[in-house]
């Protein structure tokens, strides 16, 4: 007899096509416009941040008004105007220019930290999830330690003590010590949560049939990790990158506010807010308002994008 695979009656233990269909009906796509706006906002912000030094209509961050402009400013208390779009701070410096320069710093710090954290946390998480055993146990204690380290203590120690001021010589290029310190802190803070997410995902992935099959065929561990597991981790990591970036921007804002982030030659939004805060009552509210709005919108935009990506790939861990 020929070997025909029979079409057996489907097992009702699985949800029927109908219930599956109903479960799959997508929720109303309410974030679509939010997503477009967020991307547009970030593109504009990044454009200004990258070309701040070149664009002719952006003043220097430390430029003080002279002559007539200075006299005019004295009567005008920092309100936004045609030439000072975001108004001025109490010294008369252009809040728009300073905000744009701050964006340059903030975005660089955020990006550098999240990339570093993704690489380190991703690698540790993958290894912990794949090899398990003592390796997993040691790493999980390290993650526990990092999570038990109150973030603020870590930040205050690292930035406040190790990287107070001066330049750091890294061979090829130099950078501000503070700048480096903040990146170190933010990376340390995000490694443990990221590694945990990646570990959980790897654990689940390495039980999948195709991974077991590859292992059965004698593929090396590294090959399996790189060819089979990593590609499947990428969507989750991609989405975590955005939400993580949003969290880091908030953290950086807090650090900057306390005076533990980059201040020279120009500060980030958090410090601008703190700096102008005492002047609110004296009419200096605009210099607080604009950095606040920019920080909020940037965090919101990254969250919206992260949320969208997570929904697109159906990743639960990465959602807020």
């Amino acid at each position: 007899m020929t070997d025909i695979v029979l079409d057996t009656p489907s097992k009702p233990a699985k949800p029927s096509p109908l219930t599956r269909l109903i479960g799959r009906v997508p929720p109303i796509r309410k974030w679509k416009w939010g997503f477009v706006l967020s991307v547009a906002y970030l593109v504009v912000l990044t454009f200004f941040a990258v070309f701040a030094n070149v664009l002719p209509f952006i003043r220097r961050y430390n430029e003080l008004p002279k002559g007539a402009a200075a006299r005019k400013l004295a009567s005008y208390r920092g309100k936004p105007s045609g030439s000072y779009w975001f108004g001025n701070d109490k010294l008369g410096r252009d809040t728009f220019a300073r905000s744009v320069y701050a964006a340059q710093k903030t975005l660089t710090i955020g990006l550098a930290s999240i990339v570093a954290a993704l690489v380190i946390g991703g690698l540790l998480g993958m290894l912990a999830g794949y090899y398990r055993g003592w390796y997993d146990r040691v790493l999980s204690v390290i993650f526990d330690v990092l999570l038990a380290f109150p973030a603020i203590v870590l930040a205050l120690i690292v930035v406040g003590r190790f990287f107070q001021s001066g330049r750091l010589n890294l061979g090829l290029f130099q950078m501000d010590k503070r700048f480096f310190g903040v990146i170190v802190v933010l990376t340390l803070l995000s490694v443990a949560p990221l590694a945990r997410i990646v570990r959980a995902q790897t654990l689940a992935l390495s039980q999948r049939e195709y991974v077991l099959a590859a292992r059965g065929l004698g593929a090396s561990s590294w090959r399996i990790l790189i060819r089979e597991i990593l590609p499947n981790l990428l969507p989750a990591m991609f989405s975590v990158a955005f939400t993580g970036l949003a969290v880091l921007l908030v953290a950086e804002g807090g650090l900057a506010f306390l005076g533990f982030s980059v201040q020279l030659p120009f500060p980030t939004w958090g410090f601008m807010i703190n700096e102008a805060r005492p002047d609110i009552v004296k009419g200096g509210g605009w210099a607080v308002f604009f950095p606040c709005i920019l920080l909020f919108l940037t965090v919101l935009a990254f969250n919206v994008i992260g949320d969208r990506v997570a929904r697109r790939f159906d990743i639960r861990e990465a959602t807020l």
Binding site: A246, V250, G270, N274, R277, I280, L295, N303, L320
Partner: peptide
């Protein structure tokens, strides 16, 4: 969603003001 994206420094400054 908005509240999650609102840094507490901004909230504190607003509340204080």
């Amino acid at each position: 969603f908005a509240a999650v994206s609102l840094p507490n420094i901004i909230l504190a400054v607003l509340l204080g003001y």
